[in-house]
């Protein structure tokens, strides 16, 4: 293990009864932004829970910012965690919730409120700060989770699938926020099952599948291998048919279909497609785009492809 690493794992394994969550992982995560890429069930969340000290290693060791994390609450002054699960105290307002959590960091009420306001402004939730979380949209819920993670300005931010369910504008803002955080000298570990998402935040990735780290390094090397692999995007929108008509003009769109109020697109060039989609959402002339998701089978197929090649 290197001492300069923000996270260092040495033969780290975690199993739940007979099920292996993480299998003999040795790695060292450098400072800056690191993407953890893998399909659902690959072990990303298990790794993140070990990094955040919620789980105890079954075997091996893990050090975060140079210290063991399990039963070391003092380390949480320097950590911020945004979990994947959509779980909240629904009756509290966003401001009350973030303030209450920041207060657990030993901050007095007035300062905690000020920090919560700042964090909510950072994720563009100032206008909704006084609304009950139960009334938030999926994207707003994602953002308020981010706010509680970064409100105390931690050195290391750990984000588990932070873009899931966000609309294109919120996605772009969140990606920019993560990049700004990295530029400010902080470290971020961000997980996703969408290569394009990770790629838009960092070039440094960890590829994980079936509890093992398959590769570490520059995203572009991986990208070259899978550039032509079709990528599916599920877009929930106010006017899906008009959106689809516009997509038909794009040369990277391979196929289109409708599901309820959504249009499902297969694209050969996800980066180009997402850029255009964000521009469309910002222009707003084809109605509101509510939610953009990408099914897990994209990456599953990519991994199968990588293993075969």
């Amino acid at each position: 293990m290197t001492t300069s690493a923000i996270v260092a794992a040495d033969h780290l394994s975690k199993w739940y009864g007979q099920v292996i969550g993480l299998n003999d992982v040795t790695l060292s995560v450098p400072s800056g932004i690191t993407g953890l890429l893998g399909p659902n069930g690959a072990g990303k969340s298990t790794f993140m829970k070990l990094v955040t000290g919620q789980l105890m290693p079954s075997q091996g060791e893990i050090a975060v910012l140079g210290e063991p994390i399990w039963q070391n609450p003092g380390l949480y002054f320097r950590l911020g965690f945004c979990p994947e699960q959509d779980a909240f105290y629904e009756r509290m307002t966003g401001l009350e919730w973030v303030t209450a959590l920041v207060r657990l960091n030993g901050v007095d009420e007035a300062r905690a409120t000020e920090m919560a306001h700042r964090a909510l402004a950072t994720v563009d939730l100032t206008d909704a700060a006084g609304k009950k979380i139960g009334a938030y949209s999926k994207g707003m819920r994602q953002r308020v989770k981010m706010a509680q993670a970064l409100a105390h300005e931690p050195d290391l931010l750990i984000l588990d699938e932070p873009l899931g369910g966000m609309d294109p504008i919120a996605r772009r803002r969140t990606i920019r926020l993560i990049k700004d955080w990295g530029r400010a000298g902080k470290s971020v570990i961000v997980s996703s099952h969408i290569l394009h998402e990770i790629e838009s935040m960092t070039a440094n990735i960890l590829l994980i599948n079936q509890g093992r780290i398959l590769a570490e390094g520059n995203v572009h090397q991986i990208r070259d291998l899978i550039d032509d692999h079709p990528h599916t995007v599920h877009i929930k929108a106010e006017r899906p048919r008009e959106l689809a008509r516009r997509f038909l003009a794009y040369d990277d769109v391979l196929s289109l279909k409708f599901e309820d109020e959504a249009v499902v697109v297969q694209t050969g060039r996800p980066d180009v497609f997402y850029t255009r989609l964000t521009e469309l959402a910002a222009a707003g002339d084809l109605g509101t785009i509510h939610e953009v998701t990408s099914p897990d089978d994209n990456l599953q197929a990519v991994f199968q492809y990588l293993v075969k090649s």
Partner: peptide
């Protein structure tokens, strides 16, 4: 409710 995470990742 899966809200324990928020409490267990604070310095308390």
């Amino acid at each position: 409710d899966k809200t324990l995470t928020y409490l267990f990742t604070r310095p308390i």
